[in-house]
Amino acid sequence: MAVNRALELLRSSKKVTLVDLDFVEPFYTLRGLKPFLQEQGLTVIAWGREDSFGLGETGSLVTPPARWAMWRSGDIILDVGYGAHGAASLNLVEGALESEELKVWAVINTARPMTSTVGDIVDYVQGLQRVDGLINNSHLGDLTTIEFVAEGLLIVRKAAKILNLPVIYTAVEKRLEPELPVADLGPSPVKVISRYMPAARW
């Protein structure tokens, strides 16, 4: 999601910085994608694969520039993973939690069992503490159908209502774009996205 949003902002030729704050499951981070994204014109704050070399367990590591990301000009996207501490990860970026400009969006995939029901999503988002909106990213990878995305949206919208939060948008991958006109995905906006993460496997 973060990668897509960053690339989207880049198209309006803004200066965009993407920051890797995904610690607990760090495999799924931007490291592998860094060279490609930088070629696109994005500034990526994350350890590259080569920098991580020799760092053994290569688990949670913050790069010094990540701490001061909010000081940069242009658009800033913070890719925050989950963890027992929820959105407290934002504490690690100076000025993030207090920032009024910063929007914290929780990306929900109803295909993940822990956020597949309205109740679970509500509990999960409340556990994160600071959240400004939900994004419906319900998908099953290559097996995603437009119906699945729409079913996910229904669940996310119900949860959003209880939480009194907006649904910012629904993500639909490029492969399903042809089916959009007949799909029932209103009224929140729909964004067509590409899945980069398989390349970011490690």
Binding site: E25, N109, A111, R112, P113, L143
Partner: peptide, 15 residues
């Protein structure tokens, strides 16, 4: 039965 999308590690826990 439920169709899901998750990591192998999470799958182990559910199994």
């Amino acid at each position: 039965t439920k169709k899901v999308f998750m990591t192998g590690n999470e799958t182990v826990a559910w199994a």
